[in-house]
Design a binder for these strands. Structure first.
Lengths: 255, 255
DNA sequence: TGTACTAGCCTGTATATACAACTTGGCGAG
DNA sequence: CTCGCCAAGTTGTATATACAGGCTAGTACA
């Protein structure tokens, strides 16, 4: 009945992930090599190899034969968890991204925000309200709350040049995310921001993201229904020699 | 400049995945043990171990110390790729699922359907139109086309007792999926099926799924905006000792 | 000065070996 | 007949060793 001891390779992984999570090891920093782990951790090289190899598969580190092992960019982590960075999405389409910061302030968490972020009423949070444009057409209203002590420098950021999600991923790796998508009629303010006609629905994404085991940000993203689609392409891990399917632009098939 | 040879462990993985994909090894079947692979493939046990261990991580097989290695249920594969099985979702909430099959026929692929499934005009497809109910409330209209020669027994299925997605995953593992989510006003027929008021938007999921490198099914799923949300919870691989966040029921935060 | 080479470190893979823990089936004692 | 135990097969982990190949810095040589 006694629990199995935690394997050595897992201890190594935990140790390295911890040093990454707490900021001791930052992206592009060099991680101890297999031989250094052999020395310092008193394991065999194969055990160190397994730990580092699995961390590679999991996206924590990046290895180059002949050079070493390096902490991966947080943003390159699992794409399902990637904070939906609207700026990258737009520039990836070859279009111009711009935005307008409507609010950027410190507030006290109340009601739903406090509940969503697991905070007591009145704890400090930052509130950001941004409208994002694709080629000058409004495409997203980002209404985001950020736990203040997770991002102390938040008010110093210029969110016209770095999106909140890019800023947050630069602080610490994001480890869990919860997402709810729904179709909803916008209120008057959102409709105005998105320049939508009366009666047009919004695609709303509500997303909470965890780091170090606690929720750190809570975002409501409103998109104009007629102009926006949430697309995803999923490939099973370990699939080889798969012909990447050309992403056919699916037209509106509803008759 | 010469390409690195494909490693032995990868060859083992490819061989086993191929035997699973082609149907030679079916879910719950026993996969050769490490020692059997040592004999038949002329590798060391550690190499066989690595192949089977990685297939475990990737969700292809399931291992039990003392018993052996077994092909995993296709449906237990990566949750991002899981065909959105509305019946499981509803029963998972403790509610009753029922459905009404409005159409279940063989057709010739035309226009968008042929294009989406990479078929020539006129090739045989099955067309299924089903309304799904949660506790007698309509919650999804499933409008699905299936490549005929992928699922020859399709017309013999009773989709009141097994959903199309469950049927399809029972045929072959699904390997890739493409999904588009949007908010859209329903047409009159969909609005009637879902018993929606005029002006209420739909959450529409359009999904294509690949198997063996070709698209095999194409589904349009209409959900009533006010009653339905698409939820997802994502955890990074390799995350340990994370307290599973209680999924707070996020209320409608829009004021 | 500049080029070519090499030593040394690194990752990537492969093997042989060892021991622990789990599961099942069979066998023997009661 | 039943219970308990043990042997065999299986996975899970750990180690030592070996060789191939990539990368870099420094050195020897022209």
């Amino acid at each position: 009945m006694s629990a199995r001891p935690i394997p050595r390779y897992q201890q190594l992984k935990d140790m390295i992930v911890e040093r990454i999570s707490c900021g001791e090891l930052r992206p592009h920093d060099r991680v101890p090599s297999e031989n250094e782990l052999v020395q310092s951790m008193n394991v065999s090289r194969m055990t160190a190899n397994r730990a580092l190899r699995e961390l590679t598969d999991e996206g924590y580190v990046h290895r180059v034969a002949g050079r070493g092992t390096f902490v991966a960019d947080f943003r390159s982590r699992s794409h399902v968890l990637e904070v939906h960075n609207i700026a990258d999405e737009i520039t990836g389409r070859g279009h111009a991204h711009s935005c307008e910061v409507l609010r950027h302030s410190r507030q006290h968490a109340r009601g739903e925000v406090a509940k969503a972020l697991h905070l007591e009423q009145g704890v400090d949070v930052f509130h950001v309200l941004i409208v994002h444009f694709e080629n000058a057409v409004p495409i997203q209203v980002e209404d985001r709350h950020i736990v203040a002590d997770f991002a102390p420098g938040c008010l110093d950021q210029d969110f016209r040049t770095i999106t909140p999600s890019a800023y947050l991923t630069s602080i610490s790796p994001l480890q869990e995310a919860e997402q709810v998508v729904r179709a909803q009629d916008p209120n008057a303010a959102v409709r105005a921001y998105l320049q939508m006609a009366v009666g047009e629905p919004c695609l709303v994404v509500v997303r909470r993201t965890w780091s170090h085991g606690r929720p750190v940000t809570f975002a409501r993203l409103h998109h104009p229904g007629p102009r926006y689609e949430l697309t995803g392409h999923y490939t099973l891990p370990g699939t080889r020699k798969t012909t990447s399917p050309d992403v056919v632009q699916l037209e509106n098939l509803q008759r």
